[in-house]
Design a protein around this nucleic acid. Structure first.
Lengths: 197, 197
DNA sequence: ATAGCCATGTAACCAGTTACATGATTGA
DNA sequence: TCAATCATGTAACTGGTTACATGGCTAT
């Protein structure tokens, strides 16, 4: 299990509340590790039992009291130990691939439609990552050096999304070459707001 | 949940026992959907309760009786329905990325060592996929057309592994550029057996 | 009115892993 | 002697999701 360790890494970066961590899991680290707030609160409790984190309560009126967690010495030690033992590569369970594998030729139109959705989504994500990379390059050299490792994870994201997109387009082409008039997708323009019903 | 559907897809291809499915999950479909035999037996039981599969018992002496499962009409219908409703992209929980994200500069040597292990593993896998692609191209055109969709999943694997390797090498280079004399990995020669302890 | 932000959590459930159990046959 | 292959399964556990619960504040 490494949600524990993902949380430790985040708290090492900067102390925070459970809510706060949940937000952070929606960006940055969230691109390669997912967690919902319910699970985070449970893990924080376990981490506290292990004495790997502590918290201070910040009283608030009108809202539940904040618990601002920070990593302990013991937590840092545990993190270091975890870093030195190899992890196994993540298992992938990708339902889309199951569909493609199992689809009949007659399912092609359906699959093409679904691939298009994924293409749109991944194009948006690639644009987003591109932005992030630009803003990294906007930093001075010292800062860039400092954030070298997190930057590498962004590179991973970019490569992954790019590769995924290339495959989706390849798959689409091959499937559409079935008799479906190849109606090309709109170029990634993003931000086209649709009005509410 | 789609282990159910992954199993249906496999049984649609060809009937088989639980054991048999477990083997198939180690190759082909197994590269994008993982399952152990324990889970497979449970799902088969559920699928049977749903009447999506049936089985015939083949008595064997000296071994437990075989249950050869096949998909039912109802199962095929359920599969078709599943195909037509979009799946969400798989969540990734990649511990290696957490390490890279959270590592300190001083952890670089450790990380480089671990990256090297992954590089070796992925190179072997890329070679393996390359073989599979070659043997696909060795087929006549009719067969190739027939296995077009499964072939696409192989393409996915190739692209994924290639992209992963490129990133691993990029990451290695950037981390090793810390003061570590860059001792290059052996080229992917594979099959170098090491004698047992 | 409705949804979203902040901030915490519990409970029920679904999905997946690890360990345990049986037992003959074949090969290193 | 040890491990692997064939063939089934149960039990305990860990990991993760969905639904439910509270409650004021702000923006549409």
């Amino acid at each position: 299990m490494s949600l524990k360790h993902a949380i430790l890494v985040m708290l090492e970066n900067e102390p925070g509340t459970g809510y706060d961590l949940a937000q952070r899991f929606k960006s940055g680290i969230g691109h390669f590790w997912n967690a919902k707030h319910q699970q985070i609160y449970l893990e924080l409790k376990k981490l506290h039992d292990d004495k790997w984190v502590e918290f201070e309560v910040e009283a608030q009126s009108e809202k539940p009291d904040k618990k601002v967690y920070h990593i302990t010495r013991a937590g840092q030690k545990a993190l270091k130990e975890w870093l030195r033992k190899p992890v196994k590569p993540p298992r992938v369970n990708d339902a889309l691939l199951v569909k493609v594998f199992g689809g009949q030729p007659s399912d092609a139109p359906m699959l093409v439609a679904e691939l298009d959705e994924h293409i749109t989504r991944y194009r948006a994500r690639l644009a987003e990552y591109g932005q992030m990379e630009q803003s990294y390059f906007g930093q001075d050299e010292v800062t860039r050096r400092r954030y070298r490792l997190p930057y590498l994870t962004l590179r991973r994201g970019i490569r992954y999304v790019r590769g995924t997109l290339e495959w989706l387009e390849e798959a689409r082409a091959l499937l559409a070459d079935n008799g479906i008039p190849s109606q090309p997708l709109l170029a990634a323009r993003s931000h086209s707001k649709r009005g509410k019903g």
